[in-house]
Write a protein that binds this DNA or RNA. Sequence first.
DNA 1: CCTTTGACTTCAAGTACTTGAAGTTCCTAG
DNA 2: CTAGGAACTTCAAGTACTTGAAGTCAAAGG
Lengths: 151, 151
Amino acid sequence: MSAQTRTRTFSIKEAAALTGLPASTLRYYESIGVVAPVSRSASSGHRVYDEDDLDLLTWVACLSATGMSVSDMRQYVANGAAGAAAAEQQIELLSAQRERLAREAERLAVRRRYVQLKVDYWQAVADGDDARATSLSEGARALADELKRTK
Amino acid sequence: MSAQTRTRTFSIKEAAALTGLPASTLRYYESIGVVAPVSRSASSGHRVYDEDDLDLLTWVACLSATGMSVSDMRQYVANGAAGAAAAEQQIELLSAQRERLAREAERLAVRRRYVQLKVDYWQAVADGDDARATSLSEGARALADELKRTK
DNA sequence: CCTTTGACTTCAAGTACTTGAAGTTCCTAG
DNA sequence: CTAGGAACTTCAAGTACTTGAAGTCAAAGG
């Protein structure tokens, strides 16, 4: 029932759509060895991705999205290929990643409030409501302080 | 009471600490014209930042942190200098920024769940709990799909 | 059969910083 | 007054991509 689904292959465009990474980045990651060279169509020379490639790339996409360096990703992928033996190290790498994300989330929340405040500020300026503008301006300053502390 | 507080000046290191931007980035932004050349100490040639500079840089830091391009920042800063007349355009720019941030927050939330799942997965592998590992692996796949949809 | 369209290919250059080297200048303590 | 170290300066090179140019290949329409 799934003999053909499991062996389906994908063009670079499809792989890009499925992993969320631009095609240019897929080529780039391959060129610098983050992922192994992808097999090619014999006739056209175009890259042909299988489902295993996609699984790996989805995972790499997640790592890169969280600010992991390409050399760390290379390392991580190598570990992943080594299998369960490297589980300990995977967990370590991932926990660091998780904390990075948590901090990122905090900073992002503050930034959102900051931007909203700035929108309100300029709205007040546009409305000629100077008192409100001044008070918002002070709020922005306070938030900017908070932003710098969370960093 | 605040005659001297309002005229306080800052070194590049202090400016970096207060804005959250590395000193190298402050120099870079100046070199490419995102901000106007900062005044210098007559004796040493070192940069001297005043509070207005800091306000502007804090704001630029927020814009850059949310993914605004340097040319857009340049534009934005130019508008800011023009004052209230450009309020309309500021609001437009900022609203776009706000939406970018909202999308970013969504994606970040999914990514955090994804990483947590991967931690759990490797923990299960380390524990030899194959059934749990398989089930978590499926969950990861579902989340990866979601991640790609939110993009 | 030929041409055009579109997706792919590589390679070179651009973007937004970051890092490192090499050389001042400032400050503090001997 | 002078030696040392921290902090500053510029400039060049590195990083992680992204974008654009120029060419190749495959299927569809005339």
